[in-house]
Design a protein around this nucleic acid. Structure first.
Length: 1134
RNA sequence: GGGCGAUUAGCUCAGUUGGUUAGAGCAUCCCUCUGAUAAGGGGAAGGUCUCAAGUUCGAGUCUUGAAUCGCCCA
């Protein structure tokens, strides 16, 4: 027997009961056991969520997909690994721990103690993982989760006493070790649960990967000018500056005049006039104008670059742009296309090709600074020059120089920018690197020493003014790279970092990328584009918490890469004892030293930590036992599926996964990669806590429920940003959950009342039953096909359409079949059909909305509530099987569509003629072709009932209802007639449409203006005759006989009375089956109608007595409608 | 600066090889059905298809240019 169901339901509360049910019944573990060693396996490779903060609603998007396909494939009978992971190492964790401690610089960390700091990083990860675990469970995400309480216990102890020996119990076995050691084993086979990228195996597996790269000669140390965050004290790799890294910023833009020291002896100048040339010759103060938005780089200026193909203007300004020597006349060189940069009046004396200026020399801005003198010494030393020799600042050609902004002259500081650095290397110029790790000036820069790069524009300006080099200053708004973790504006620094060379790997990775099924398909092009353009992969960071790069350097500058814990143990000559028993992290690993086997030199580990994408990219190997159990790895790798949000991941996780699987196995990481866009608020704005428009996951789950959220994600188009909010969630609830629940509650309510049980004799199904079953099969087919192709939206929309059909056609049309107290064969068929539909629908919906599917399934299959100790779950079932529809099913689907169209048209006519449906009408006249007529006849009863009419007739002559419009078939005639078309069109319009229609229907050609048109070149459209109240669509026209007889009016009134009485019953909270006594006062016409239809009214209202005259003192309900007055008193019979 | 994409109703988006009267959902308003419904149904209103030029008998659709907005890469 089914458990009674209310039609009002608190979905979030119900979901919490489902979660308890799953826990209590071990539903997830039972599923694992059921599918263990199944012949099929389906391997999902999880992209780790950063365990640093609570989970957000944007995470829930991807996690819904992950769970959707895991559940789907489990329901297809496959075995799964069910392991998801946490990303644990890297700067983002450090930044948050620093914030909590109030630290602002790296020195703070070192004073605090690196070991203490690392422990806090681990603690933060473990606590975040515990919280994210709880939130994921709340979402209905089935995975092999850790117990959050255990994670919190480890988090507590890892700070209090990481060396305490503890035991963790796993399946009756005890795993013993120090807290630190056990934390390092999380996710590994002995402990199970989620993987953590800080695990020992994850770190050592990366060592193994890096060693492999080193063996191929790809690891190198490079000096480059790279984006640098002064706050974090680390380089930011190209991979990390994604769109979020760029922000608008106002910077001072300074135009500098560089005093020319020597120019070519006889440059080819196009003088405006001989006077102009004379004026030039008479003016000794000559400058080249350059422009920069980064004044802090000026003390590092070495050269100026001009565009060799550009033209440069020679102008004279007599009053001074220069703030220092007012009144002095000066000559300026600048791009001929950017004269607007000049301030004040000027006179153009001539023009010169950029190529002519190459090699000119100029006076350095700050040649007296010790930094420049030192840079020259190093330069001379490197090139074997005399130590006194000084590099002359000069003009060099560079094709990239343009005139879009600035003066057409670019100031080159090889220590302060990547392009500058490249040019400096090509020329072999000195390099001046002004900034330290913290983004402040190093010594040798006079007054600037110790000041931050972004603080010094005023000081630089003053220095330039004092020397007469300043021309002008303005404010310039541009997009500038900021640190993606702490939002500090970046600077460029010349540093040593470690790289993996992409020269050889690039093409292998592109080949592997080609073999992946990218969803949406443009993903492949994006990834290839990135691979095509990307520079060498910078893998080092000068930080603390992360992968210890396994690179040991010797005093002579050579280095080695160590590939495993074991290898390090055999090679260690110092520090091993202190390290042993610790996870491979700083500071413990830093003390281990090795000895060069040949030279005997002692090698020391570089202190850098690794790029966190190494951590996330290796998980296809580290978590799948690549080193320990190759058979297991081969079983599960490559995976079938991985998914993440697109932005950033082409160069981050997707990239790292492809790189590592290419290097280690020359294979793709997964067959299919699904990417999706970004989650924004309902207005399309990015969600930010600071903006107040963000929605917390917990809040959304509490308010809207996880099923509604999951549905919102599932029905989303992958390429489009998801506009997430409560309106949209409400829409999801209204589109799916509420209609579904209503159907379910309707079914259960009546089945309980009737004592109906599944499994009774097979009943004879009506066409309506057969129709909904065919629709269901069609929906199963569509859903299965879409999910198989990793397309959630078409699947979700198919289900929405089905639920709508089920609710608004099948159940609505079947309601009367469930009424009455007898169990008729027809009722039996209706129960059986609806039960069947709901059972299969639960299994279809289970991967999408696991909560509601479980609740319904428990009740309708076994009459259980969530409090019962069931062992079965809908999630243990198999997904409904697809099969091709039979011809009869296809026909049924088409026919019902026609019938529903007739109903819509009928309602439309009633609405237009303002006759409400409750008023019966004599009949409808319909124009339809033979096929549609047959369908309408077959469904006559339903149509009459639905439209509240007595009969349906077909118009013998269509002209009774319609007129014809004849049109040329432009698609066919356009090409044939070309310019003659307008003439033919007009000619055709002038003919009698009825005549043309008749000819065309007879298949005869029509001649218009001397041109013959075949019958199939003319389109005949039937449309309602003007003046008639009819509605038409797709060849069917419906007219209603709206003439009311006294009899019809009476029937309408009786029906209205029934409705009023039933409303009153409802208002009085009577039960559906309560018998009543009904007393009334009615105006004469209504009273007559009630007497006329007495039995009908009694039946419909369950009135045992229906009597005119209202008892004294009874509480009455008074009504007025259609000009009639109606007063009633209802008394329930107990 | 280069590449890709977009611009259609108040909002979010469809719109097939160019074809006759440009659609849907949400929101608004009116009407209506209902003893499963928090639903459902009918209707109204809402459009210079970003702009300009071109090709064509015919352009939301094709071409060129402009503007604005995304995304990717420099």
């Amino acid at each position: 027997m089914f458990q009674p169901v209310s039609n009002q339901v608190d979905f979030p509360a119900q979901e919490r009961s489902v979660l308890e049910f799953w826990t209590r019944t071990n539903a997830f573990e039972n599923l694992r056991a059921l599918r263990k060693d199944a012949p099929q396996r389906w391997s999902f490779v999880d992209g780790p969520i950063t365990a640093n903060n609570p989970m957000g609603v944007h995470h829930a998007w991807g996690r819904t997909y992950k769970d959707l396909w895991c559940r789907y494939h489990a329901m297809k009978g496959a075995e799964l690994r069910w392991q998801q992971g946490f990303d644990c190492q890297g700067l983002w964790v450090e930044v948050n721990v620093e914030k909590e401690l109030g630290f602002t610089t790296k020195r703070d960390i070192e004073n605090f103690g690196m070991a203490n700091f690392i422990a806090l990083c681990k603690q933060r990860v473990l606590n975040s993982a515990a919280q994210q675990t709880e939130q994921s469970v709340r979402l209905g995400y089935w995975m092999d989760w850790n117990n959050p309480a255990e994670l919190r216990m480890l988090a507590k102890k890892i700070v209090e006493n990481p060396n305490e020996i503890i035991e963790l119990e796993r399946g009756g076995e005890k795993v013993r070790g120090t807290v630190e050691q056990l934390v390092g084993k999380l996710g590994m086979p002995e402990l199970g649960g989620s993987y953590f990228t800080f695990s020992d195996e994850n770190n050592y597996m990366i060592w193994s990967f890096l060693k492999r790269c080193h063996e191929r000669g790809w690891i190198y140390r490079g000096t480059d000018s790279i984006p640098w965050c002064g706050r974090c004290g680390t380089g930011i790799s190209q991979h990390e500056i994604d769109t979020e890294g760029y922000k608008d910023r106002d910077d001072p833009a300074i135009t500098i005049r560089f005093r020319i020291r020597s120019q070519a002896a006889d440059p080819a100048v196009d003088w405006k006039s001989p006077e102009a040339q004379a004026a030039f010759d008479a003016t000794p103060a000559r400058f080249i104008l350059a422009w920069t938005t980064t004044p802090w780089t000026l003390p590092a200026n070495v050269m100026l670059a001009i565009g060799p193909k550009l033209r440069y203007a020679i102008v004279r300004q007599s009053h001074a742009a220069s703030a220092t020597r007012d009144g002095e006349s000066a000559i300026y060189f600048l791009g001929a296309g950017v004269l607007k940069m000049l301030r004040g009046d000027y006179e153009v004396l001539g023009e010169i090709d950029g190529a002519q200026m190459v090699g000119w020399t100029y006076e350095g801005l700050f040649d007296e600074l010790p930094a420049w003198i030192d840079a020259n010494k190093r330069w001379a030393d490197k090139h074997g020059f005399d130590a006194e020799r000084i590099f002359e600042h000069c003009v060099i050609p560079w094709d990239e120089v343009g005139e879009a902004e600035g003066t057409g002259v670019v100031h080159i500081a090889p220590g302060c920018g990547p392009e500058d650095h490249k040019l400096g290397k090509e020329i072999g110029s000195p390099m001046v690197a002004p900034l330290g790790e913290d983004g402040h000036y190093l010594s040798g820069f006079g007054d600037l020493v110790g000041r931050h790069a972004h603080e010094v524009p005023d000081a630089v300006e003053a220095m330039l003014k004092q020397k007469g080099f300043f021309y002008r200053r303005e404010t310039y708004r541009h997009r500038y790279a900021h640190c993606w973790r702490c939002s500090t504006p970046l600077v460029y620094r010349l540093v040593d970092e470690w790289y993996i060379s992409m020269d050889e790997l690039r093409h292998d990775m592109m080949r592997v990328t080609e073999t992946i099924n990218w969803v949406p398909s443009f993903g492949k092009e994006r990834e290839l584009d990135w691979l095509h353009n990307m520079h060498d992969w910078m893998i080092s960071k000068k930080r603390y918490w992360g992968l210890a790069l396994p690179i040991w350097e010797y005093p002579d500058g050579t280095f080695e890469v160590i590939g495993s814990h074991e290898e390090l143990r055999t090679r260690a000559v110092e520090g091993w004892q202190e390290f042993e028993g610790h996870t491979p992290h700083r500071p413990w690993i830093d003390g281990v030293k090795i000895k060069h086997p040949v030279t005997g030199q002692i090698g020391v580990r570089v202190t850098d930590v690794g790029n966190p994408w190494l951590d996330a990219g290796i998980v296809g190997f580290s978590t799948m036992r690549f080193r320990a159990d190759r058979a297991y790895w081969e079983k599960w790798f490559p995976g079938q599926f991985m998914t993440e949000s697109f932005p950033g991941q082409f160069r981050n996780w997707f990239y790292a996964m492809i790189a590592m699987s290419t290097v280690l196995a020359d294979v793709r990481p997964a067959d299919t990669i699904l990417g999706f866009a970004t989650l924004v608020d309902e207005k399309g704005e990015p969600m930010h806590k600071s903006k107040g428009n963000s929605i917390e996951f917990n809040e959304a789950a509490d308010k809207a429920g996880a099923d509604a959220m999951r549905w919102a994600y599932a029905r989303q188009e992958y390429d489009d940003n998801l506009r997430f909010g409560y309106n949209y969630l409400g829409e999801c609830r209204r589109n799916l959950l509420i209609p579904l629940w209503n159907v379910y509650s309707f079914f259960v309510t009546y089945a309980v009342a009737d004592g109906w049980q599944p499994g009774a004799d097979a009943a004879i199904l009506t066409p309506l039953d057969a129709w909904i079953l065919a629709r269901l099969q069609q929906t199963v087919n569509e859903t299965d096909r879409a999910l198989d192709a990793y397309q959630s939206r078409p699947a979700a929309l198919a289900i929405e359409r089905f639920v709508d059909d089920l609710s608004t056609w099948y159940v609505r049309r079947s309601r009367a079949r469930f009424w009455g107290s007898e169990m008729t064969a027809d009722k039996q068929a209706a129960y059986q059909t609806l039960h069947n539909v709901l059972t299969i629908l639960c299994r279809t919906l289970a991967p999408f909305t696991p909560f509601i599917a479980e609740v319904m399934w428990q009740n309708i299959t076994a009459g259980r509530t969530l409090q019962d100790a069931a062992t079965e779950s809908v999630h243990h079932q198999l997904f409904p099987e697809s099969r091709a529809l039979t011809a009869a099913e296809e026909a049924l689907l088409r026919e019902t569509e026609i019938a529903r169209r007739v109903v819509n048209l009928g309602h439309s006519v009633r609405s237009q003629s303002k006759v409400k449906v409750r008023q019966p009408l004599a009949g409808a006249r319909i124009v339809a072709d033979a096929a549609a007529r047959a369908v309408i006849l077959a469904q006559r009863d339903i149509l009459c009932d639905e439209l509240n009419i007595k009969d349906i007739t077909f118009a013998e002559r269509a002209e009774e209802l319609v007129s014809y419009k004849v049109l040329p078939d432009l698609k066919k005639l356009g090409k044939k007639l070309g310019q003659d078309l307008p003439r033919v069109r007009n000619g055709l319009a002038a003919l009698d449409p009825a005549f043309v229609a008749a000819e065309v229907q007879a298949g005869r050609a029509i001649t218009v203006d001397g041109i013959a048109l075949a019958a199939d070149e003319i389109i005949v459209q039937a449309q309602p005759r003007p003046g008639l109240v009819v509605a038409g669509e797709a060849g069917i026209v419906v007219a209603l006989d709206t003439e009311l007889t006294e009899e019809l009016i009476s029937e309408g009134l009786a029906r209205e009375a029934v409705r009023r009485i039933n409303d009153a019953r409802k208002a009085a909270s009577f039960d559906v089956s309560d018998r009543i006594e009904t007393y009334y006062h009615a105006t004469p016409r209504l009273a007559t109608a009630i007497q006329l239809y007495e039995n009908y009214v009694k039946n419909e209202t369950l009135s045992v007595i229906l009597q005119s005259g209202v008892p004294e003192n009874a509480s009455t309900s008074v009504d007025e409608f259609d000009g009639e007055g109606f007063t009633i008193v209802l008394i329930r019979i107990h």
